[in-house]
Amino acid sequence: MTDGERRHPAWVSWASSVGVLAVLATLPFVLKSYHLGIATQILIFAILAMSIDVLAGFSGRTPLCHGAIFGTATYFVIYSVNIWDLPLPAALLVGVAAATVLSAVFAILAVRVSGVYFLLLTLALGLVVWGVCLRWSQVTGGENGLRGDLRRGALADIKVFYAIAAATSLFAYIAMRRFVNSPFGLTLRGIRDSESRMASLGYNVTLHVFLAFVVSGFFAGLAGSIYAVFNNYVSPSAVALPQSVQGLLMAIVGGIGTLVGSYVGAALIIMLELFVSAFTERWQIVLGSVFVAIMLFAPEGIVGKINQLTRRHSQSKNTNP
């Protein structure tokens, strides 16, 4: 089997894609509506985690503002349906556009710095958005948030909505994978590994990171827009710091720089939270312990660890034929 993997990587990746698609397609028929809702949520948050991974895993910049970008899209979608009376598809576009514009603004301010300064600057920018949402109550509804009525007609059926979320999530995954594997994406990895080398080779580092940031913001906004329809409600907690941290944790736990790890991370965190909180109200302690364990035993994340193990395995086979 491992031999087959090495000899036919294309065949294996096709098979696993078909397998994943088959699982996604069967879920609506085997899961109850509540569990299907959780699956939908996982698919949405995986988009957010992947968008963070594009920056953190492939560009060497760890952002703490993606919750704010995500939530901005959510706010815009609900606001534009409620107040501007836009049809839902147009509202979704508005949400994505708003998130993209916001991330461009953030990017202009943040691309010059890296490392811990980038982390802190994006953290501060995210908090500004949170502050605005909390205090500008005439527009955002303040603490009370905005209530939407977006799940009308066919969308009220969780199966239909699940299908849309799954399709969006797959699209986002394929698009982002294409993006990070493109020559542009390879340049980003070069920047991640050595910024000064890429700069001395003549690459415009700032522009590359800027574009990566905007692309990442676009996908965070896509996730936020879909989330608006899923939750039908938005409040400052959607743009708050915990949202950014949670997205980042999903990417890290699954495996930073793997994209597909975001699905594993999102699934693990969301299911763990729901599962543990059914038994104890101290579920955060359990969740925290799991994070610590993962960071101790698999700092490269779950998918990262699996990749590492299989690579080691195949390498040892290579050296001892």
């Binding site: 948030g145 939407g148 939750n231 039908n232 409600y233």
Partner: peptide, 12 residues
Amino acid sequence: NTGLAVANYVKG
């Protein structure tokens, strides 16, 4: 905010 969110859910 929690009440409004839940109210919006049961509205459906």
